[in-house]
Design a protein around this nucleic acid. Structure first.
Lengths: 333, 333
DNA sequence: TTGTAGGCGTTATCAT
DNA sequence: ATGATAACGCCTACAA
């Protein structure tokens, strides 16, 4: 007969077992469907569970199984639409499998980021996907994470770390922009200006430095990945007397900030100023004018996480992957 | 002496106990600092833990303590900047305490939302904060959640449910808009149009219906809380021949979509069309023109979650709270 | 096919 | 002040 055990709060397998007149082992098997058993018994157990309002305690299961079917995702800044969109899409993709995605925001802060790592590690997540906040300062958190659990750097990376990285080929993306400028833009009448997202993340650094190897912008400004930086940069550009230019930016949010400032100052886009973004966030095709940009192949990149995750069990040394971006020519440039 | 027990994977209290030459009870006490003990011993244990790379297993702790120091947060749509910003701010606020905030996206889908609830319940979160996806369809998920754990509806609510709600006074917000129109806008030359966010959420419904009780817009359109709906609505407005109007919207994202469409069609704001938003998202003060809008007191609302959470233990019937919004007059209207 | 029993890692109770 | 031990809820050999 069912072993006796009384508990205070919630309904447990013991309660269900008692109610259905079976052992707890049978309850477990009936509910997880992990083993064959007589159909009548199974439905009886399931009925008991439903009647009692039984909800499996994943904490108990995790402790026993030493796995949680959970993926931890750490985002540097949820206010950045590219990142929050990424979070949504990763979440959606893994929801198709039986994996729960838990999201934590690092809030652009090294300490918060480390704390999020420790929280996820303590919760025994099966894997960790992290967009590092800073190219240097995130190293400690990444190393800590990778010591305990399969870890992937996504979109940005801390270089020279033995931790797999999945991102887009930023250099190739900027080459596409360069080639486009050479073939389709009169850069003598509309001189090139580069507005980067800053050197503190790999994506920002890679994009800017690659562009600089092939092109020679008449002006080069570096800031951060934000709308307000784009506005500030545009202000500086006007202050320096530019009446026309081709403005290449390190991200769509920056480009949108640039456009916002220039149009409100009465300038025409793309007639006076051309503006080119990077990422292809959702609003890029809705803004006015629509944004010419480099699209990151987010679907493929997300799929790669899944693949890498499955290989992670017992694979020798998972390697990094870079995916080829694509130039989307719209109205702004 | 320390009891013997070997484990496969990680470092446990037993390993630390052995290394420090104490019992596991002492290890637990030394690390959690929950009880007084000789200072020398405590540091010795802490040193051992550090040396061995011990990381507390929160799953084990949760099982024993029957609490997780975790707050579950379910967001309908991370692509909506108001929601992702909310997630960031709630996360930040609770990070100050020792509470971890875990975020899940419902992706505007009833099934995903319910799944998120079950996941959080199974993980034994101490409390759940939920922005319901739909005013009707979210009822089941909410009731399920509240049956097991203190639950709060935030920003939106399913009416007539015995589940506390924290939000802003949407009706009062729209009254502010109405009063502003009456005192400061010539609505005879710029007739009023209402562009709502749809009737499927309480916030959308409350805002539109309140506005309609006091004002009589010449046109009333309902859609969803998105940038693209704002554009579509603007398109319809122009199609109907309006050359000028005061457009009151149900949310900033909608207002921004409206502005984007109108300006690209060559109209001036606020000279031709005035546009008023609701929420006061971050970009509202950065857009061009800057957005006149109703600010939700997000800080206070977030604080209220914390307070309600603390009362939740043993309180009789936690009540709903609505916070007074504020009209922010900027350039667009 | 079904039941018994042990253990996952931690903390709290009870001795000492 | 410290140590031994039971218990949290679950799953899974192993036994029947």
């Amino acid at each position: 007969m069912a072993q006796e055990r009384r508990n205070n709060g919630g309904v447990t397998v013991f309660d269900v077992a008692e109610h259905a007149g079976v052992s707890i082992a049978t309850v477990s098997r009936a509910l997880s469907g992990t083993r064959s058993m007589s159909e009548g018994l199974r439905t009886r157990v399931q009925d008991s569970a439903r009647t009692l309002g039984y909800q499996v305690n994943l904490v108990g299961r995790a402790l026993r199984q030493k796995k949680t079917s959970t993926l931890g995702l750490i985002i540097p800044d949820l206010e950045n639409p590219f990142f929050s969109s990424l979070a949504q899409r990763i979440s959606r993709r893994f929801g198709e499998s039986e994996v729960d995605v838990l999201i934590a925001s690092a809030d652009n802060d090294k300490a918060q980021e480390k704390r999020a790592v420790q929280s996820f590690l303590g919760r025994q997540v099966d894997a960790l996907v992290m967009i590092p906040t800073d190219e240097v300062e995130s190293e400690e958190a990444l190393l800590l994470a990778s010591e305990y659990v399969p870890t992937i750097q996504f979109d940005r990376q801390v270089p020279h770390l033995p931790i797999p990285y999945i991102g887009c080929d930023n250099a190739a993306g900027m080459d596409l922009v360069g080639a486009y400028l050479e073939t389709s833009v009169d850069t003598s009448s509309q001189p090139v200006i580069l507005v980067g997202g800053g050197e503190s993340s790999s994506s920002g650094r890679e994009r800017s430095s690659e562009f600089l190897t092939a092109q020679s912008p008449v002006l080069h400004l570096e800031g951060s990945f934000s709308f307000s930086w784009g506005q500030k940069a545009a202000k500086q550009i006007l202050k320096r007397g530019f009446q026309t230019a081709t403005i290449v930016t390190g991200a769509d949010v920056i480009a949108l900030g640039v456009i916002s400032w220039l149009t409100s100052a009465g300038h025409k886009i793309p007639d006076d100023f051309r503006v080119i973004g990077f990422d292809d966030v959702g609003v890029a095709q809705l803004s006015h004018p629509t944004l010419t940009t480099v699209r990151q192949p987010v679907e493929e990149m997300t799929e790669a996480i899944k693949t890498l995750m499955q290989e992670a069990t017992g694979s020798p040394a998972p390697t990094s992957q870079r995916f080829a971006p694509e130039l989307i020519v719209r109205a702004s440039g």
